[in-house]
């Protein structure tokens, strides 16, 4: 005789296995799990350019300010000067690498500022909510109400360009601060949104009930979860800032005196017809850097944004 059916409480009942209807829907998707060719390319490029920028002073490069007789206006691939020379005879290769130093410094510096300040403010707004949130959110909205480039432009114009005697360093610092201020509300809002949703989770409530202090909860419970969203935006933000540096140079308020990718393009602009490489080279440098940052930022976002990865 057959044995009786096993008796079990309801919660061990037939669980919902992979619903085939969901298979119908999920079949179309193919999320990238690994870094493809593009991903590795991005990482390599960024490592190379950042490495070159950081190590520039000790690399066997020519002095970017030194002019070489006979190098003036020479197209790329000259003996000893891989990328040719500019109108005054500077070595393009060293200029573009030293230019990377300043441009990347501005990019990372501004985003670091925005990340730290915006992130902190966003965490506070999202965690404490209430009055703090209203004040901070209004602050963000006001800053965001001024078009970003216009805001940066006005800040730089007022604080640096107005002063004829401003040193290069001062200009760079003002540039970093201005672009940082512009990026604060963007990072702040993303952090706030992320914090809001994570603060509602039970493990945060649990920590609150235990009596843990807000600072501890924010930094040990909430922050690690908010970090991925911030990372993605930061990567994209660096790309934006690097481009903004170029735009500001073209608009006349950029850095002068030391090469940056932006002011190299500005300088070479007038000779686009005869010496296209003057504009090409820094343009390609910016393009590759922006491409890599965008791609990696996208991957980080796709990995950690639940909505997208289900797709």
């Amino acid at each position: 005789m057959p044995e009786p059916l096993a008796e079990q409480p309801l919660d061990a009942a037939v669980l919902v296995p992979s619903d085939v209807a969901a298979v119908v829907q999920a079949v179309e998707a193919s999320p990238t799990r690994k870094l493809g060719f593009m991903g590795w390319f991005s990482v390599c490029w960024l490592v190379c350019i950042i490495g070159a920028a950081v190590l520039a002073p000790i690399l066997p490069l020519d002095d970017p300010d030194e002019t070489f007789p006979g190098l003036q206006r020479q197209p790329p691939v000259q003996p000893g000067h891989l990328l040719g020379g500019d109108a005054s005879g500077h070595d393009m290769l060293s200029r573009v690498i030293f230019g990377a130093r300043t441009s990347l410094l501005v990019g990372f510096g501004a985003i670091l500022l925005g990340w730290v300040v915006g992130g902190l403010l966003g965490l506070m707004a999202g965690y404490f909510k209430g009055r703090a949130d209203t004040v901070l959110s209004t602050g963000f909205n006001v800053l965001l109400s001024i078009p970003a480039l216009v805001l940066a432009l006005s800040l730089v114009a007022v604080f640096a360009s107005s002063d004829q005697n401003a040193s290069n360093t001062r200009r760079i610092v003002v540039l970093i601060i201005a672009l940082g201020i512009v990026s604060i509300p963007v990072l702040g809002r993303i952090t706030r949104a992320s914090t809001l949703s994570w603060s509602e989770r039970e493990f945060v409530k649990a920590a609150q009930v235990i009596g843990a202090r807000p600072r501890r909860i924010i930094f040990r419970e909430v922050l690690p979860n908010v970090l991925p969203a911030m990372m993605s935006i930061a990567l994209l933000g660096i790309a934006v800032v690097i481009v903004a540096e170029g735009a500001l140079s073209l608009l006349g308020v950029g850095v002068t005196g030391v090469p940056t990718w932006g002011n190299m393009i500005l300088d070479g602009y007038s000779q686009l017809s005869e010496l296209p490489h003057l504009v090409f080279i820094p343009s390609i440098a910016i393009f590759l850097t922006v491409l890599s940052l965008n791609y990696l930022g996208d991957i980080v976002r796709a990995r950690f944004d639940v909505r997208e990865s289900v797709l």
Partner: peptide, 15 residues
């Protein structure tokens, strides 16, 4: 599209 949005607008404009 991805490549296009990675080109800075001034670069595209100049070219």
């Amino acid at each position: 599209a991805f490549g296009l949005l990675s080109i800075p607008n001034f670069v595209l404009g100049l070219f």
